[in-house]
């Protein structure tokens, strides 16, 4: 039935992916369906002027009068990055450290498969999960956009989805790398969450505090959201996100190959 660690993992993820994809996709659709009534609001500018300046900056509310700006404010500045972070971190921590903590790795790792190959199968499964989640949400929002005739360029939506997908992947791979290093789900979740929260604080503070602004560039959230992300096109800086995840793995894998399992 399953011929590899990868296919077994994808079998395990099937229901979770379906639920996450459906729920988040439907929220995306809902936002798209709300867009026409927002667009047609006669006194939208006046309404937005009532928002505090800080919120207008953080959620890019000024741009809400365009469909790209609307999606950024409603989906891409908080909801989708948050969901991709949660999905990436929880699954990244569960796939290796979670199995190790519950003793399930003991027998899988004494088969003919090497530890590094085992870990790479898990990396592939995490990556495919996150990509398929992004594709599902993209399809929901894209089709809904066509239905309400939102006039949203497909490439812009794709760029936005790529950005939040990479954000989830970066933190997911980071959680997995910490799991490979330590065998602890708590550490894996904790370190990756701390990086995510720290990144968000740095990004948000950089918007308001001039002294912090130069350091914003170190924040993964900055890499993901600074361009919009809808409306800013595909940016080379997006590639930093998976790259950081890959570097974390490259550091963790040799240690995983050598360390004690499940102590």
């Amino acid at each position: 039935m399953f011929r590899s660690v990868f296919s077994k993992q994808m079998y395990d993820e099937r229901r979770r992916l379906l639920m996450w994809g459906l729920a988040t996709g439907l929220v995306g659709s809902l936002m798209m369906f709300l867009w026409p009534s927002m667009r047609d609001m006669p006194d939208l500018d006046e309404f937005l002027a009532n928002y505090p300046q800080a919120m207008r900056d953080l959620f890019n509310i000024e741009a809400i009068t365009s469909v790209a700006g609307f999606l950024n404010a409603e989906l891409f500045s908080f909801l989708l990055p948050g969901l991709f972070l949660i999905f990436g971190i929880t699954r990244g921590a569960a796939l290796v450290a979670g199995e190790e903590e519950t003793g399930k790795l003991e027998l899988v790792l004494v088969t003919s498969i090497s530890r590094v190959r085992f870990a790479l199968h898990k990396v592939a499964a995490l990556t495919v999960s996150i990509v398929s989640l992004a594709v599902t949400i993209f399809l929901f929002v894209w089709v809904s956009g066509l239905v309400v005739d939102a006039g949203l360029p497909t490439g812009e939506l794709a760029a936005g989805m790529t950005s939040v997908m990479f954000l989830g992947l970066e933190h997911g791979l980071l959680a997995m790398a910490v799991g490979l290093l330590t065998g602890s789900k708590t550490w894996a979740t904790g370190v990756a969450s701390a990086v995510a929260v720290g990144g968000y604080v740095l990004y948000a503070a950089g918007k308001f505090v001039d002294a912090v602004e130069p350091f914003q560039v170190a924040s993964p959230i900055y890499h993901a959201l600074e361009s919009g992300p809808v409306g800013g096109g595909f940016r080379p800086i997006f590639l930093l996100m998976p790259l950081v995840g890959i570097v974390a793995l490259v550091i963790a894998l040799p240690r995983f190959d050598r360390r004690d399992i499940g102590v």
């Binding site: 399930k104 790792l109 004494v110």
Partner: peptide, 17 residues
């Protein structure tokens, strides 16, 4: 890996999926 391939192993705290 070569050693493991030749052993039938039952851990003391056997846990399956």
């Amino acid at each position: 890996e070569r050693v493991q391939a030749q052993i039938g192993y039952l851990p003391g705290d056997f846990t399956a999926y």
